[in-house]
Structures are given as structure tokens and as C-alpha cells.
Design a protein around this nucleic acid. Structure first.
Lengths: 249, 249
DNA sequence: CGACGTGTTGATTCCTGTCAATACTCGTGG
DNA sequence: CCACGAGTATTGACAGGAATCAACACGTCG
């Protein structure tokens, strides 16, 4: 076992073979631009539970999540914490032009990151518009997601919050499994505590509301984490959103 | 009185003389680029209380707020509403590449907007990087603000929420009046109801907490809207943020 | 086995929402 | 001039939902 396991670095694959090649910040890059990116990138892995970045830390890199799930959190002095972002594969971490982290970034599963040295990346952004264009698009999407979350945090009941979270995970899961199954089943990638930080609740309330949804037949649980949704419309209705589910974009 | 007062259009001034020239989405544009913008822009005014855009509406333009204050709100089917953005002069409205509005936009004071026809604006964005660069910067700032607000909505008490809102208005006000006065005084640009929509509270709770802060000497009221803060540190402490007030950027 | 992390459930408190009455300001019109 | 109504704001009584404090269950790992 090496002395510095948390700095684990792996030889990055060629961008051509990257699983997030077409969705990450590099999605629009052409061959020549990828060649430039190759020279400033390196891989770095983190174990589940590990803090990737502390708020206020010097940031000498920006990065894309390649595999795994990470969270962005903010805290008040007395320890109250609020998750402000959920980072999935292809999501971007860091802000070009800013040298200190504004949030804590934590790995909730094992995470692999594709890091770019910040200064060269910023230079590259100025010379090639494709990266900036893609980053703008991704940032606008994140802003929409953040605003959707503000509605949840400010106005939804505990039950609606849980149903909303389950809907979102289910929706994302359904997007992967191409077929439109009537019965949706998935694993929750978050602990009860992480869910509470996400939803602005206590973990006890999260637990109680999940039990209530189970009792009412909205969801079926196998173990603590595996969820089956017998009737997706029912769940969406419990989430309190517009019933049409009509999403933009 | 014309039949369509809400479509009031005014002859826009030259960009050189625009009060938000150096802060809006056009901030980085050069003379030639401004000339192009001039050809696709037009002014439009709205009265206080008027809805500027309905969520779901066709958007044939994007725009900058020139003067006045507007709000971005989202609503649940049963009428619960949450403000998700506060638009001040120089802020940008609309999303290039999207043709339907995602939020309600409402004028809280009389508002003047500098509108750009959407299609030509999108074309311009592709050809000149300066606009996209500035828009990226502004969007990242908004994302930071949204995340700050998520912490408030999810984890702060009613009293802390009010103190936070007052702090933000006071800070913005202080930024205008260059001198660093110890005693801060300002007018609240929002009704109690707008404040409640912003903070995820009821208007009764807003009223009660403002009264409590007044009773405790944290603030002094002249009338309903004019606020004096005898001790800014005290107010910041009540807001629950890190005491150093150390902000990034 | 015992410690630890994770999750569930119960009892109780209390903060905020709800419902309701009242006050204040500002126009309008008789 | 004053009555009236609409919009805005304050305050009280009360109820309810989520937080808090606490006990306990389950699985894993040393």
C-alpha cells in the first residue's frame, strides 16, 4: 500500500476511448483540440466517502467526473449542511478564472476524475470556442437544475421532497435503460443522511417518509436501497410537479 | 392612451451611452460588435406588477434589464410559488437555444428591457466569442447565487432568512454608495409577499420576524419599507453566515 | 463477540403555517 | 370633505409538520 493512496493517479486513456467523450466539457472538441487537452489532463481516483476538495482550498485544476458520483455541499458555521449539487459522470467541477473552491466536493461512491491543469485549461478556453460553448451549455443546465431544486427546498413538503428525489433518480435510471418499462426499479446511490442533506430535512424525517411511501404502496423496498416503483405516475403525482411532466429542452 | 400600453416600445439609445454597457452581456463587445447588436435590439418597458413573460410562452427574444427590478418565479400546480431569481439592472433574461420560457418573469418596479431578437442573437453568439464569454461568466455567477440561496432555503431558520435578505440588500446598497458608512440605511424594493416568495416563508412569518428583529434592535424601521441597520456585524451574525463575510471573487 | 455505521421508530417539543381580525395608506367618487 | 374599497401590513390564536432527543434493529468487519 503506498503512502499517499488518496493521490492515486492512473494513466488516462485516449480521449477517443473516453466513456464521457460526447457529453463532457470536451464534447464539441475536434481532433486537434483533443490533442491539446491530452497534454494537460491526468486521471485521479477517490474512494467512497473521501473529500475531493475542501471549500476554500486552492484549486490548481478543473475536472470532469468520469465514473462515480460526487456531491457539492455548503455548510453553516454550526455544522448545518446543504447539498447544492449532485455530480454524475460527465459533470464538470471547478470554475475557470477562480482559484479557490467555493464548495466541498465529496465522493459518495468511488470516483474517477479527469483533471485539467487550470492555467493551461483557461488558456485553451480562450483560444478554442468549443470548450467555452459546451461549458456555457452545461452551466445553463445546472442553473436550471438548481432553480428546480430551489422550488423543492422552499415550497415542498417532506413527502413531496422524497417523492421528487425518487422521481429524479428513476428518471435518470430510465434514461439509461432504453426500453420504456412500466415498472421502474433502481438502487438509491445515497445514504439517508446524504438524502437529508440534499432535501433540507433531517435523516429521521427522510426515513419516516420513505416508510410512509412504502406503507402507502407508492414504492416497494427490497433491502434499504433497492426501490421498485409499481406506478410511476403515482410517484410523479406525489412529487407535486405538474402532472404532464413536460420538461424543457 | 394607446390600446396596447404593455407593449410600450422606446427608441433605444446608442450602446455607448447605455448605463449597463460595462456590466451586461455586451460588456466585452468591441465597437464593431456593438454595431451588430444595435441592429437587432429594441427597448421595451413594463409597469410595476406587470408580468413580462409567462412560463411556457414562446420566447422570440432574449434581453438585458436596463433599469428596474424583475423577479423569476416558479409555481406548483396548487399555487405555491418560489422566487428563483432576482433580476437587477444588467442581468440577462432568456436562454439562447431555448424557445420557450422556463419561468415567470415579473416586474416588481417599472422595468426597461433591452431586447435582442433571439435568432440573430444566437447567430451573433456563434460568430463573436465575446458575448458567449461574458454570458458564461454571468451564468456562473448566477449559479453561485442560486447555490447560496439553496443553503438558505434548505437550512436557515425564518429569522436567519430575513436577516440574510436584509444583509444582501444592504450589501448591494452599500456597493453603490462608495463610502463605507458604519450605519446602513436602505429601502426594501420588495413587498412582504415578494419577500416570502423569495425566502420560502409565508408573508405572516416574514412580518413577524421583521417585527422581532425590530423589537430586538437589530434593525430600525421608518415606515414599512425603510430600514436602518445600526450595527451591520450584528445583522450579519443573525444571518448565520460565516462571520468573516469572506466572499469569493 | 462487540464496535461501528446505517437505518427505523417512538415521544415530545417547537417553529412555522393556517385562519382570522384589525390597522394603515392611498385613490376614487359621491 | 369624508366614506368606501383595494392593497398592504401587523398581530393573535391555534394546529400541524418537521426537528429533536432517544432507544433499538440490522449488517459488517475486526
Amino acid at each position: 500500500m503506498p503512502m499517499v493512496p488518496d493521490l492515486a493517479a492512473a494513466a488516462p486513456p485516449a480521449c477517443d476511448e473516453c466513456p464521457i467523450r460526447h457529453r463532457a466539457v470536451c464534447a464539441r472538441c475536434e481532433a486537434a483540440e483533443l490533442t491539446q487537452l491530452e497534454t494537460i489532463k491526468y486521471y485521479r481516483s477517490y474512494e467512497a466517502g473521501q473529500t475531493i476538495i475542501w471549500s476554500g482550498d486552492q484549486m490548481d485544476f478543473v475536472a470532469s467526473v468520469v465514473t462515480g458520483i460526487a456531491t457539492l455541499t455548503q455548510t453553516l458555521e454550526d455544522g448545518r449542511t446543504q447539498m447544492v449539487g449532485l455530480l454524475l459522470p460527465s459533470d464538470f467541477v471547478g470554475r475557470p478564472g477562480r482559484d479557490r473552491a467555493a464548495y466541498n466536493v465529496t465522493a459518495t461512491t468511488d470516483v474517477m476524475m479527469c483533471c485539467f491543469r487550470r492555467k493551461p485549461f483557461e488558456t485553451l478556453m480562450e483560444t478554442t470556442p468549443h470548450i467555452a460553448q459546451r461549458l456555457l451549455q452545461m452551466t445553463l443546465d445546472e442553473l436550471d437544475a438548481a432553480r428546480e431544486w430551489m422550488l423543492l427546498l422552499g415550497r415542498k413538503t417532506a413527502r413531496e421532497k422524497i417523492a421528487s428525489l425518487l422521481s429524479i433518480v428513476a428518471r435518470r435510471d430510465a434514461a439509461l435503460k432504453t426500453e420504456a418499462a412500466q415498472v421502474v426499479a433502481f438502487d438509491l446511490p445515497l445514504t439517508r443522511e446524504a438524502m437529508s442533506d440534499y432535501l433540507g430535512l433531517t435523516l429521521e424525517t427522510v426515513s419516516r417518509q420513505i416508510s410512509a411511501l412504502k406503507r402507502d404502496g407508492v414504492i416497494v423496498l427490497q433491502g434499504k436501497r433497492h426501490v421498485t416503483v409499481p406506478n410511476m405516475d403515482r410517484l410523479l403525482h406525489e412529487a407535486g410537479d405538474d402532472s404532464d411532466g413536460g420538461y424543457l429542452m
